[in-house]
Design a protein around this nucleic acid. Sequence first.
DNA 1: TCTCCAATGTTGTCGGCGCTTACATTGCAT
DNA 2: ATGCAATGTAAGCGCCGACAACATTGGAGA
Lengths: 200, 200
Amino acid sequence: MVKDGYHHGDLANALIEAALAVVESDGADALSLRDLAASLGVSRAAPYRHFVDRDALLAAVAARGFDALSEIYLAADAGPGDGPARVREAMRHYMAFAWSRSGLHRLMFESELLRRDPIPPVLAGPYQRTYEALWRTLSRAYPDAEEAWLKRRRVTMLSTVVGFLVLDEAGRFTPEWARPLSREDLVEAILDVATGTARP
Amino acid sequence: MVKDGYHHGDLANALIEAALAVVESDGADALSLRDLAASLGVSRAAPYRHFVDRDALLAAVAARGFDALSEIYLAADAGPGDGPARVREAMRHYMAFAWSRSGLHRLMFESELLRRDPIPPVLAGPYQRTYEALWRTLSRAYPDAEEAWLKRRRVTMLSTVVGFLVLDEAGRFTPEWARPLSREDLVEAILDVATGTARP
DNA sequence: TCTCCAATGTTGTCGGCGCTTACATTGCAT
DNA sequence: ATGCAATGTAAGCGCCGACAACATTGGAGA
């Protein structure tokens, strides 16, 4: 398969990667299939040969996001330290991921994609792998814990971190709002609460 | 001021309220100024006499949301029980608000409106009142606490609750994901963590 | 090697949208 | 009574997602 002037060669992947760049820099709302096609040098109808509609392309982009996140979790799981330290490290890396690719993170966590019934097939696998990786790290960190305790921890941990990221991305944590706490203070406080090591 | 067939009479308010209904039922993305104008029986250019653009109308809608939320916080502050119990009650009512008006909640917390610099003036007042009400409840509940401790608690508390709501609204907490925990178990676990009464 | 088909890309078109400009109507202050 | 500012209308621009009809190509099977 080679670009021959008429057929692009690998338009599907090129579309996903170009869309990924747009989503990361300007957010999913800013994605225009027409602009995308133009930037890749194809006609505006070409994308529809590979994605039934705009949302299908966004779902594929979100899938790449979950791929990246699952690798982050896997890397944290292989890192040094005892179990609880690795959980904390996983959350720290997750926050770094969300900050460095905030448009993508918003697409993954705030879009309607995951609310669909059924969940878009391209998303199901990466999504499941992501949470299996996190679940493994968590359950190994607390091998003696009951399942209910672990599940509770998983929900509260993710809620705390995601909430912090959402509020932060929404511009909520200005310096004057937090003073006298620094940004690092906030991050550590969040990690303390998320991982259950909060000081009262 | 009366509807005379040509002039509407109170188009600005009518637009906000109609938009509020759309946002609550179908989300902010579904709002079309043209549809809105048609449903109110005015021309499609009429809304622009009252709101410079679509975002300005959404900002006004979000402002109504913060008005409603600040009243909820005020009511919780006047409720029975000791301070910490009132904080917990405030968070419980906040969650009920977000669930019953989820489209509005998403607009308030996930839109770009608050990230603007400067924050839209119509939003500034209601937003500030909302967090002043919550801050009062919180600081009265722990009168001996240092400011840094209270600020930390405010950030972690809101993060946990907002994160739970965002993930829930994104369809993340399916029964099989949470099993064996019930929905009420999740809510109580979130309130425990948010208010700092988590059991390990 | 030739042929035909499925995959892929193009052009043309439609309806909907946000927004702007130029014009019409009305109430109110002077 | 009048003139102006506020408010509403009509028409149109450019952009968008999406669809239909047509064009091009590589490769499988004769």
